[in-house]
């Protein structure tokens, strides 16, 4: 599957990464090359094989529904680039 410049623009938008226009064509070539190499998986017969999401043969554990953390707003906000009144601050999103 060849990736073109428009596809790079689209997936960069999906990934929320600003990609300078000059980088898009070279990136399209790089990604096409990598995806072309990956396509060899098409040779493998996977009919009836269940997808493996985790190698761990376990059920997710349950724990008691009890509060065991919290009340640390200063720690939570300690690395925030911007915060006000105990909240993370971001550019205005509502007019």
């Amino acid at each position: 599957m060849a990736v073109d410049k428009d596809t790079v623009t689209r997936i960069a938008r999906l990934a929320r990464i600003q990609v300078p226009d000059a980088d898009r064509a070279p990136l399209a070539a790089e990604l096409s090359n990598i995806l072309g190499w990956i396509e060899q998986l098409g040779e493998v017969d996977t009919e009836g094989v269940a997808p493996l999401a985790s190698v761990v043969d376990m059920k997710l554990r349950w724990r008691a529904d009890a509060v065991d953390d919290g009340f640390i707003p200063d720690k939570v906000l300690a690395n925030a680039p911007d915060h006000h009144d105990g909240f993370f601050a971001v550019p205005k999103v509502v007019e």
Binding site: L41, V44, T46, P51, L52, V55
Partner: peptide, 14 residues
């Protein structure tokens, strides 16, 4: 085509 396929091949590798 890609992700689920890869997970199936991963099962075969395991």
């Amino acid at each position: 085509a890609y992700y689920i396929k890869a997970q199936r091949v991963r099962a075969l590798i395991a």
